[in-house]
Amino acid sequence: MSFSEADIAAIWLTLKLASTVTVLLLIIGTPIAWWLAKTQSWLKGPVGAVVALPLVLPPTVLGFYLLLAMGPNGFIGQLTENLGWGLLPFTFWGLVVASVFYSLPFVVQPIQNAIESLGDRPLEVAATLRAGPFDSFFTVVLPLAKSGFITAAILGFAHTVGEFGVVLMIGGNIPGETRVVSVQIYDHVEALEYAQAHALSGVMIAFSFFVLLGLYGFQRKQTSFLSPRGV
């Protein structure tokens, strides 16, 4: 199977988008996950539900509202225009923002679960050993909840690679800018270029399969390593 230049561009764009989104999600998602895992506030339910909304909403609904919010009359749009960044729809960064919202639950939930199952004890132990909050996050929480963070990164990345509806609503179909693999496949099918559609779709299936295979293998290894002795 051979890829056209447009196909290669779509693959690169997809990888660039997914990597950027994954890094941002780990940075944004970790404090949210931490708060959700530790808070006693009544806001835990509502915030948790908002974070999980993309799991159940049709991507077009999410995309529609993000398009309005990022547009000239939306609050994100006004903010970005005031900052001199212009409007985000139909740009790469528009896709990044939309994907961060769209993939948020896939990153927050594994991290939240990992932090919850860790409990308070390791942090208390670290405090009695004179480790401050940041010290204990990096030396205790991160290593002990490592599997949660890795799962979160893999799911965030894979889920961003696989999105279609939100991309179409926000990004449209601009080659090299917003035309990711899933959109490229759609174009091939529309143009009845089934061979090219097969090639790209095959790559997607193989990619997704091996990502999940790796993930499950990794999780199994982690659970056998994590015995109930120690914190």
Partner: peptide, 20 residues
Amino acid sequence: IPTHKRSLGYVFQESSLFQH
């Protein structure tokens, strides 16, 4: 004074070793 600034040693009831 927060725990991490107190000069104390604490031995917990169950094992509290960092398992990593």
